[in-house]
Structure formats: C-alpha cells, structure tokens
Design a protein around this nucleic acid. Sequence first.
DNA 1: TCTGGGGTCCTAGGACCC
DNA 2: TCTGGGGTCCTAGGACCC
Length: 412
Amino acid sequence: MKTIFHVDMDAFFVSVEELYNPDLKGKPVVVGGQPDQRGVVSAASYAARKFGVHSAMPLRTAYKLCPQAIFVEGHPKRYKECSQQVFDVLHSFTPQVEMASIDEAYLDLTGAERLHGPPMLAAHKLHERIREKTRLNCSIGVATSRLVAKICSDQAKPNGVLWILPGAEARFLAPLEVRKIPGVGKVTEKSLHAYGIRRIGHLAALDRKFLESKFGKWGLALAGKAQGLDAGGWFAGEIGEGPEAKSISHEHTFNEDTADAQVIDATLAKLSEMVASRLREHGFHARTVQLKLRYSDFSTFTRAHSLDHATQLDIDLVEHSRRLFHNNWTGKPVRLLGVHASNLQVEEGQLNLLEGEKQDRWKKALTAVDRIRDKFGTDSVSLGSAMKGGFRERVHETPADLPGKHPPKQER
DNA sequence: TCTGGGGTCCTAGGACCC
DNA sequence: TCTGGGGTCCTAGGACCC
C-alpha cells in the first residue's frame, strides 16, 4: 500500500505576482497580458474567478466579465525561481519527489511514518514548511495512488489538506463528475454524457468490455481510473527522476496576421534559434524538425521532416523550417508559426567527417552566442539569416510582437 | 468568447522490409 | 497476373494537461 502526496500550488502565478507587488492581494488579478492583446488568461486570482474569469479564457472576454481586474504580464523567470524553491523544500522532505509541472509535484512517502509521522501529520508539516520557506499557499492531497491524490488536492483547494483513507477511494470518487478525472477533457466528457455517464461512480459500475468497445485502449485505462488506479501511461511509473524530454518547441502568434515573407522568414529564424539554443543547453540533438502553421481562420497544419543526422545547430533548423514553410504555404496571411524539434538524442548520431567538422565549428561559435544571450538577452545576438530576413528592422518597429515575450500559462 | 505557449500521448495510414 | 502478414519508421492530426 502506497502513500502518495500531490502538492498543488494555489493560483501559482498570481501568488508569485503578489509576492512582488503586495498591493495586488485580495484584488481581482489576471495574469496573461493586457486585455487588448491576442492571448488568453494564464491565471486568475480567486477574486477574479468570482466574476467567472478562468484560465484559458481569451483576455478580451475576461475584460468584459471583470473590467476592474488588474491585468498583468507574466514573469516566467520568477515562476521558475519560485518553482525551484518549492522543489527544494519538497526534496528536503523526501528525495522521492517529482515535479509534474511548474506548480505541482508528487511525493512518495510510503514507509516514511517513522520519520514524518502518520500521513495527515506529515502533510500538515509539509504544508507549513512550504508556507514558511516560500510564502506561498498550496493544497495537498494524500492517497494510495497518484490519481486519487491529484483529485484529492483539487478538492482540498484553496490552502487545504485532504487525506483519503486506504479503502475509501471508491466512496470518495463516486459522486464526482467524470471531468474530474485527469485525461477526461471536453470531448471525452461529451461522449460519456451521451451514454448517460456523468459521475465517476457510474463509470466505475460499468463493464470494462463496454468501455473498451466504445473507447478502445483509452476505455480500459478509464475503467481503471474510475477505480482510483494509476492505470496506464505515465501515471503508472515510479516517482523519482522525471522522464527525459521528448521534444522542444517554440511558437509565436503575431499580433496581426502577416503574409510578408520577410517577416515570416525572420520569425522562423528567430524561433529556430530559440529551439537550437535550448537543444544545446540540454545537450540534445534532434532528428526531426516540424513546422506549425496557422492561418487567419485558425486552420492549423504541421509539416515534419526527418534529417539523416541529428542536429543542434541554428542553421539546420532555420533551413528546414523555412523549406517546410515555403513548400506548404498558400500565400494567405499567417496567424501563428512554430518550430518543433523531436526525435531527440543525447549523443550526436554517426557523422561523416565533413558533417562532423561543420558541427564542431558551429558548436563552438554557438556556445559563445548562447553565453552572450544568457548575459544580455535573447535579442543581443542573431544569426545573419535572421537579419537578412528583415528581422532587425522588425525588432525596432514592433518590440512587443516578437516571440519570447509571453509567459507560459497554467491552470485549466 | 475570437481563441497563448509549452509539452505528452495516442491513432491511423503509407512506405518499406523480410 | 492477383496478392500475406508482421514489424518499424515516418508523418499528420487531435485530445489533453498546466
């Protein structure tokens, strides 16, 4: 029998903003940008939520619902720092910890009673320690599986601790909406509703065969989840070292759609540089380059190309993302561009002599570039190809309309 | 309501190989 | 000339998460 904790920070981005600006406390606050910008809400304070504002909602809609709200830009660096602080506290509690995202973590406290006391006492101790060291609130769910612990921390919000006794899982889950199950989103919820299944209890009572026939492999996992089991995929894994990254990507939505090939080429160069820089930072080489393209009507396409050797060089990503773009572009205005690197390898693949020398030379130069960017900002050094595309001019014209200025988002 | 950005996992068809 | 079956890789798209 396991003892799993799920720690979930309360309104994380908003709370971090409040640390830097205590005037925000208690007020309706929306993190994500200004209401006249293209974008969505990353996080809303509890005061703003009372007006119906929630994450993933367009900023314009949030403004209509709550015009008096304070709209703030996100500060990804601050969130990462705070997240690291949280991790440090958790890690001091037990080495069996795994961050599941920037603001939540799983801890395995199986057999830790001698050290930390019974689960409820341990959870309160941890809750207090996090509060003390980071000045941030969180909620903690305690249960025998990751799944129940996660649902549990959600029920404990805000700033609460909830423990589901071993054996009480089914009783706890039964009255909850199926949507509470991680992995059940809008679409799955709708199809479950179509069968008259609204609560987890309904789901748990169904024949596995029925779910399998309707939802395939996912249906079987669903049957397990309804019982509170960590069925299938990542949830089934041990808590410890987080899994290796599978892909690295950057994308950018223009403030105004553009059909200007120079702007597009410059943006692809910029995005490629950002991706390549992070590949080098993590010591990865990517074999597959993927372009993402979204038009004004929101129709979205991806086009991928696999290289014969893995790379971490800007020029390779720039070349291939541009080729993928120009081979597929209809000429209509573009809303979004993205560059995605996958098929990651830790060691560079087998290279012929020429390719090896090329990679070596570039690697040396680019590592220097990365250091300068680290010190003076991403825009301080750019490849010749980015400038040739008219990027430099754009930088001074519309500094707000560049990739890399937007915060990551959270909390659905 | 006029819809971000960074990820993961799954499905499905076609190419290619044995 | 009609025509297998399994495995693996590649590509495209979509659901979902924070």
